[in-house]
Amino acid sequence: MARGKTPGLNTGSMSDISFLLLTFFLLTSSINTDQGIQRKLPPPLIAQGDDIQMHKRNVLVVLVNMNDQIMVNSEFLPDVNMLKEKTKEFISNPSGDLNLSDKKQLYVQELGTEETVSKGVVSLQNDRGTSYEMYIAVQNQLTAAFNELRDEFSNARFGKPFNNLNNIQRKGVQKVIPINISEAEPVNYGGNK
């Protein structure tokens, strides 16, 4: 009985399969990058009492208490999602309301024009008992407000959203609408954590 040689297995497709796995892992490992809200912390205060006094109308005071309740300029805010509109209204102040932020003229080199820039600053203060979730929600709303204002400005000026501008234009828009969020120095009310 003649036993024929067994034919060789075609292993060429094996490499295809392992290539597929390889690319899968390559892609999934790079997608999983860190993302979040980016902020710049202010440098520490050297001396006490050198706070810059600001006009009351130029400050939007946002307070968050230990029960995650929000107060904006001594007015209770029932929902976080209303904060974005409040902030936008405060910063842009389209009707020139005397209770909302003042404006100043500033020459922006990147754009080559003189622009009206809001003097408004959002002052955010939270309690030690505020939950991190609420803090991020507030920060998110504030960031969204500034981002939308920047988008509106870029759309009106250049006809495209802020993210599609080139670097110089972006720098210019950042000067016209700076993210002015100031976090108050933490104060310790009693010793409770």
Binding site: Q35, Q38, K40, P43, G129, T130, Y132, Y135, I136
Partner: peptide, 25 residues
């Protein structure tokens, strides 16, 4: 997590000249 511990960490970062923070979300 409550903000107390986060505020403490942020204060420490400021004092050690580490200003660029990212709130991961």
């Amino acid at each position: 997590v409550k903000m107390g511990i986060v505020t403490d960490v942020k204060q420490e970062l400021r004092l050690s000249n580490a200003f660029k923070v990212n709130y991961s979300s």
